[in-house]
């Protein structure tokens, strides 16, 4: 299926693309993550609409990096990589089929535009910390490293090992984004294992912190622009308040649609609601 070409700054269009393609591709796989993608659709849409410094060559050394620490949102990122031309459309259409490079979690060796293989939660901020340090050593002054974190993922101890290191090393070229959708698999973050106060925790670790509405495209864009303009001396954390399942009414805040499959008739209903919002 042909991926529509969007204007370079059309973040809303890309967020819509993320949601529609997620419904379509999970339909191909007959199993996948819906709600965790929908919560970060605007974040991804803005990042790929001029925030990330990328080139036609996906391996350009000085490009910005985006680490999907919550690797299970990959199905929402593949369409954006296809739109950029990094993934062939016929490959996208065969998502998760035997031998296809695209799995539920992203593989940097199989997929151009994936900056690191992820899936095991808690690793991404360490990857980003190493990359940010390496970018400084290499003299890549314009390179920024973005790490998209889940909120329940913050239970992982390694996140805080990395947080202390990034602050101690003064890695202002590192920006963490917490997709604060309020839920893990078993229920709300606060009933499963509380993680608040997220902003205060990162601040206590020596990070600069901003909170924002993760579905407000303008607010998200401004936060990223502010981050680049400030060129801070310390790492920055953007806590994006989001809704798990955002965009499909009966998935918003759902405890059961973290994983699932919409068969064609129900996928069509979901698409109708997405199209109505667009």
């Amino acid at each position: 299926m042909a991926i529509e070409q969007l204007a370079p700054d059309d973040a809303r269009g890309r967020a819509a693309l993320v949601r529609r393609e997620t419904v379509r591709l999970v339909g191909v796989a007959k199993s996948g993550h819906y709600t965790s993608v929908f919560s970060c659709a605007e974040l991804l849409g803005v990042l790929y609409s001029g925030v990330l410094r990328l080139s036609e060559d996906p391996d350009w050394e000085e490009r910005d990096r985006l680490i999907l620490s919550k690797g299970h949102c990959a199905v929402g990122v593949y369409p954006l990589l296809a739109e950029r031309g990094y993934i062939a459309e016929e490959v996208l259409d065969e998502y998760t089929r035997l031998g296809n490079p695209l799995g539920d979690h992203p593989d940097m060796r199989r997929v151009a535009g994936v900056d690191f293989s992820s899936g095991s939660l808690g690793h991404g901020l360490s990857i980003g910390t190493g990359m940010a340090q390496a970018a400084k050593l290499r003299g890549f002054e314009d390179t920024r490293v973005y790490v998209l974190l889940g909120d329940q993922e913050l239970n992982e101890g390694q996140i805080w090992e990395a947080a202390q290191t990034a602050a101690a090393f003064g890695l202002g070229n590192l920006c963490a984004i917490v997709d604060r959708n309020g839920m893990g698999l078993d229920g709300t973050t606060e009933e499963t294992m509380p993680i608040e106060p997220i902003a205060a925790r990162f601040a206590a670790f020596g990070w600069e912190v901003e909170e924002l509405d993760g579905h407000d495209v303008d607010a998200v864009r401004e936060a990223f622009e502010r981050y680049r303009a400030d060129a801070p001396a310390r790492p920055r954390c953007l806590v994006a308040n989001t809704v798990k399942g955002k965009g499909i009414s009966w998935m918003e805040g759902s405890r059961t649609w973290h994983l699932g499959y919409l068969a064609p008739a129900d996928a069509a209903t979901a698409m109708e609601e997405l199209d109505a919002d667009a």
């Binding site: 990857i127 910390t129 340090q133 390496a134 970018a135 990395a162």
Partner: peptide, 16 residues
């Protein structure tokens, strides 16, 4: 912080 050390090194290696 050994786990962080190993994973950081992985990130560094991707920069050559």
């Amino acid at each position: 912080a050994e786990q962080n050390m190993v994973t950081m090194a992985a990130g560094m290696a991707t920069f050559g």
